[in-house]
Design a protein around this nucleic acid. Sequence first.
DNA 1: TACTGGTACATAGTAACACTGAATAGAAGA
DNA 2: TCTTCTATTCAGTGTTACTATGTACCAGTA
Lengths: 109, 109
Amino acid sequence: MGKQTTEMLKGTLEGVVLAILAGQPAYGYEITAWLRNQGFSDIAEGTVYALLVRVEKRGLVDVAKVPSEKGPPRKVYSLNDQGREYLEEFWAAWRFLSERLERLREGGR
Amino acid sequence: MGKQTTEMLKGTLEGVVLAILAGQPAYGYEITAWLRNQGFSDIAEGTVYALLVRVEKRGLVDVAKVPSEKGPPRKVYSLNDQGREYLEEFWAAWRFLSERLERLREGGR
DNA sequence: TACTGGTACATAGTAACACTGAATAGAAGA
DNA sequence: TCTTCTATTCAGTGTTACTATGTACCAGTA
């Protein structure tokens, strides 16, 4: 995935995960698998779990423990109102950065 | 500027500065002023100087000391070949992330 | 002279975040 | 029993941007 991508993920990975949860509730293992499937090949499981703990502590998600057919019970996360609000701010920040980067890429210093 | 933007800058600010230097050589104070002018209102001077020291150590830029009419001499940085190569990788990483984020924003989970 | 303000660079300490690596645990199949 | 998925957790590390402060040079002004 490259070191540059890793550093870029700081600050955006959280938004990515919240955006996934905005689509539908999900649990850690599932999210990790989805990310890897999308090309974030080097995402460590530990990274996702730590992130989920963080957003839970901040009250951006609700959690439900759901028994699994295979393996230990899942912790299913869903975005709550506060999380949705936070996600909006994330998109605003993303737009801000994205616009400036695109301008730079086109050489428009 | 917001906390989210700050976290997002990690990993991208470096690319932004290198992209500026790709346009033309510049010195720290100038770069800081330019960034603030572009809406990165909270960029601390110290941040830019530390970043420039970093990229210099990694050999991505060349440095020339140029006397200033006002104040102490300027350290003018210019992107070298290695820096240009690194910048290419940065844009590749940016495209990668950008594509996936845009897809997510459109709800296309 | 002393003071202010703009230019220009530097750095010690802190917080946030993703990664590494390892451990734990349940269930199914060889 | 041993392996292999599934699923979560956590201690330790490295990178990066911020805060806050300090240094230094020059010009204008009271």
